[in-house]
């Protein structure tokens, strides 16, 4: 793995192949759906998605609405980054707000020190898909992330309730993706299915993509919970024994502040991150996602409900 990391990224036929495959998938979505959306979180995977969309339709603008499900507990750096990138691309942005849904009373905020808005994203996402009549939503999920994702299709079928049923998925052969569906059903599409975490970072390096500053090592006030480093923030009340301290950290994934943990790191450049990822001994989600630690099947359960 280490040798892979030090290979020059400029001449990597593996990355060319992954890029061509993702561009093909993006174009299939544009051709087969009437109202496709691209899910953007500000995280590295969705940054790569935006780049691929930009490439697939150049010199035209990409024909997707960008959809961000905003928990209201995002890192401010990430929101600033999102707005800058959307303006550069002259894209259309729709923000589906979890805070608004709570204020309107159709989702209930969890209580207690371990409360998170992670699960609330699902009904808000499904409502946005219904309200805007999106018939496809492109996401940045990868099959190497998690075991429930290893069996995910590139075109993942969702029934009229937005649910993922592993027993009701369409066979997917060659590169012949079937986008046909009935009214009310929709498709989640994952152009990065065959990418690994390292591929994503190598692509970011090759394309010289800008990423939010929290991916790089910085000093932050954190506290330890369940073996993970959580940022001190007004959104995440601490338990009495949880003392805060300052640590040099970075984020391996970018999600809601209540469930995304930082890792100790001194990586200040993309190249240093690549070297770190290549020798990492803990999975990306294991190191930094409290939302996956609920049970063996946490991701599977959330996917069934209609999660990303």
């Amino acid at each position: 793995m280490t040798a892979h990391a030090v290979m020059p990224v400029d001449h990597d036929p593996g990355l060319d192949l992954l890029e061509a495959e993702a561009v093909f998938i993006m174009r299939e979505v544009a051709a087969e759906f009437e109202r496709p959306a691209l899910l953007f979180s500000g995280g590295k995977d969705s940054i790569v998605l935006l780049r691929l969309a930009q490439k697939a339709f150049w010199p035209a603008r990409f024909p997707f609405t960008v959809l961000h499900v905003d928990t209201g507990h995002n890192f401010p750096e990430v929101i600033a980054f999102r707005d800058r990138r959307i303006a550069e691309l002259k894209a259309r942005l729709v923000v589906a707000s979890v805070q608004e849904a709570i204020d309107e009373g159709w989702v209930q905020e969890e209580r207690g020190p371990r409360a998170s808005r992670n699960r609330l994203q699902t009904p808000v996402l499904l409502a946005a898909i219904a309200r805007h009549q999106f018939d496809a939503a492109i996401g940045g999920a990868r099959r190497d992330e998690e075991k429930a994702r290893a069996k995910e299709r590139v075109f993942s079928f969702r029934d009229e309730f937005g649910q993922w049923d592993p027993r009701n998925q369409r066979p997917e052969l060659w590169n012949l993706y079937n986008g046909l569906h009935l009214r009310g059903e929709h498709m989640r599409v994952f152009p990065l299915s065959n990418w690994t975490e390292l591929d994503v970072w190598r692509y970011i390096a090759r394309e010289r993509l800008e990423i939010p500053s929290i991916y790089f090592a910085h000093e932050r006030e954190v506290f330890q919970r369940d073996g993970m480093l959580m940022a001190v923030s007004p959104f995440l009340p601490r338990l009495p024994h949880e003392r805060s301290f300052v640590e040099t950290v970075r984020y391996r994934t970018v999600g809601d502040m209540t469930c995304t943990a930082a890792v100790r790191s001194s990586a200040k450049t993309v190249e240093e991150i690549i070297a770190e990822v290549a020798t990492a001994r803990v999975t990306e989600r294991g190191a930094s996602r409290a939302d996956d630690q609920f049970s063996e099947a946490a991701m599977e359960d959330r996917k069934r409900e209609g999660y990303f």
Partner: peptide, 22 residues
Amino acid sequence: GLRAEREQGITIDVAYRYFATP
């Protein structure tokens, strides 16, 4: 893989796995 598979001791679907060497 999935819970139903663990519970029933079967594999339902094709799974994709990734690895790399130098």
